[in-house]
Design a binder for these strands. Structure first.
Length: 475
RNA sequence: GUCCCCAUCGUCUAGAGGCCUAGGACACCUCCCUUUCACGGAGGCGACCGGGGUUCGAAUCCCCGUGGGGACGCCA
């Protein structure tokens, strides 16, 4: 049987890190088994579902490259199907109408809670054989409830948590269609997973408690039961639960915050899953390795430091062309693009080194794309305002050496080696240590005291621009 | 409250009864490299929640505690 997995988010917000991992695992499992991955939007909660959220989810998946083979299917567009199944169940007696009002149910729940009991439906309208039902009230549209078995055990072998058993006595008759006729979550999931031929349901473990109900319904429909894999949750960096008001952010936020998707993907893959000692691997490798046997059943805490480490790795590995495009976009959206060309007064546009070679030099030290973009801006524009401790570096003592160096640099063949040689000559001549000359150069040329090797910086900056920048400080 | 789930370094994890003196990675510390900051390299610190069993032998299996989490909606 071909493997068919699905990701079924409800469009009530963006795609957060937990959802992204669930999607990633479902996707990888399908890929690993040459199966299909299906995207299904669970939008039956009309109140909270929004088209913006749908788009946000689609955007997130697109950024991460989690492509689906079928879908997106929208549950709101499948009403006819649900109604049909609903009618079948009503006719078969596996579902029934319930006229209890919300208020009635609320008080019932309250009383039960107070008595320390598990809140549950009391079965008032459940049509058991030999039971006389209350008279049907007028002007009340009923909800539909599933007639859950009252005895026995529901059990399944969870692919990550192992065998789970729950007594039917713990379950009550859940509402599968609202008073207005729209079906509810647990029912739609069952119908869809069945009709879409889902073979493995990979989802968050907040659904463990829904599983026995869903299995019962599947059984009532004569469906084959899929396998279930319940993933534990992802905790925030501080070990706290992620929620809207605490730490939960869109995966797209990681893009904005300067992370490469490769880093996010690799990080997420290792969060709750492992393959021996493997830490760094691409998605192709992941899809070959991925299995459900090596998923941790316990919750995992998000660790930004490790994400940063992976990000640094992938920035170094990135295709230069792609990296340059990304950085360009960041500069543009931050209004920094202009700075590159504004440059220093003496700059000449055609002499400006191309972004790729600058990035190639600077990316070695970066673990974040936004930071890298900033470094690049400094390199090109060298904003005077940001130069720190200028007097500390360009002391009266070194100034003559710098002047002499400037003259020498003007007449050499421009290369990192030649520049390095020239600096060494000056250093020796004046009896300085290398940093004594290198540091002021660094500050003059890049505006900061931290930069790649100064000779390499000069080499790509170009002779003309280098000399111009030095001159502007010495005159 | 009831039911369900979980428990190895600070964090992510390896671990399927002897391969464990518990391995790797991030972080941290030290040293090396060095032209600053990084990168890189070499070391170091650091964990089986507690108690009972089972067994010749338990991180691993069982039970009981403890701690954490989840679920109990006409939300998904």
């Amino acid at each position: 049987m071909t493997v068919r997995t699905r990701f079924a988010p409800s469009p009530t917000g963006f795609l957060h890190i937990g959802g992204a991992r669930t999607a990633l695992f479902s996707w990888a499992y399908a890929k690993r088994n040459q199966g299909q991955f299906i995207l299904r939007i669970e939008d039956t909660d009309v109140e909270r579902s929004t088209p913006e959220a749908v788009q946000a989810i689609l955007d997130g998946m697109h950024w991460l490259g989690l492509s689906y083979d079928e879908g997106p299917f929208y549950q709101m567009q499948r009403m006819e199907t649900y109604k049909k199944v609903l009618k079948t169940m009503l006719d078969a007696g596996t579902a029934y109408h319930c006229y209890s009002s919300k208020e009635e149910l609320d008080t019932l729940r309250e009383t039960q809670m107070q008595q320390g009991a598990k809140p549950r439906y009391d079965g008032k309208w459940r049509p058991d054989s030999g039971k006389i039902l209350p008279e049907v009230p007028q002007n009340i549209s009923p909800v539909v409830r599933f007639k859950n078995p009252q005895s026995g055990l529901v059990a399944w072998d969870d692919l990550v948590k192992g065998r789970i058993e729950i007594a039917n006595a713990e379950l009550d008759d859940l509402i599968i269609a609202r008073a207005d006729g729209t079906p509810t979550y647990n029912f739609c999931v069952v119908v869809d997973d069945f009709e879409m031929g889902i073979t493995q349901v990979i989802r968050g473990d907040d659904h463990v408690n829904n599983t026995p109900r869903q299995i019962n319904m599947l059984v009532a429909l004569g469906a084959t039961i899929p396998q279930y894999a319940h993933l534990s949750m992802i905790l925030g960096d501080d070990g706290q639960k992620l929620s809207k008001r605490h730490g939960a952010v869109s995966v797209m936020q990681y893009h904005e915050d300067g992370y490469l998707k490769e880093a996010v993907l690799n990080y997420l893959a290792r969060l709750g899953w492992s393959h021996g000692d493997a830490e760094i691997f691409n998605m192709q490798q992941f899809c070959e390795w991925f299995d459900l046997d090596h998923i941790t059943p316990s919750a995992a805490q998000f660790n930004t430091e490790k994400l940063n480490w992976l990000n640094a790795h992938y920035i170094k590995e990135a295709n230069l062309e792609v990296l340059a495009d990304d950085i360009s976009a960041r500069l543009q959206s931050n209004g920094l693009q202009a700075n590159i060309y504004a440059g220093h007064g003496a700059s000449n546009l055609t002499a400006v080194p191309d972004l790729k070679s600058v990035l190639n030099l600077y990316r070695e030290r970066a673990n974040n794309l936004n930071q890298l973009a900033k470094d690049v801006v400094y390199f090109y524009a060298r904003p005077q305002a940001n130069i720190v401790d200028i007097e500390k570096h360009i002391t009266p003592e070194v100034k003559p050496a710098l002047q002499k160096l400037s003259q020498q640099l003007a007449v050499i063949n421009w290369s990192a080696e030649a520049i390095h040689h020239e600096i060494n000559a000056i250093v020796t001549e004046f009896g300085f240590k290398f940093p004594k000359v290198a540091m002021p150069l660094r500050v003059m040329l890049t505006g900061t005291a931290q930069s790649p090797s100064i000779d390499q910086v000069m080499a790509i900056l170009g002779q003309k621009e280098t000399l111009a920048r030095i001159e502007s400080f010495l005159s």
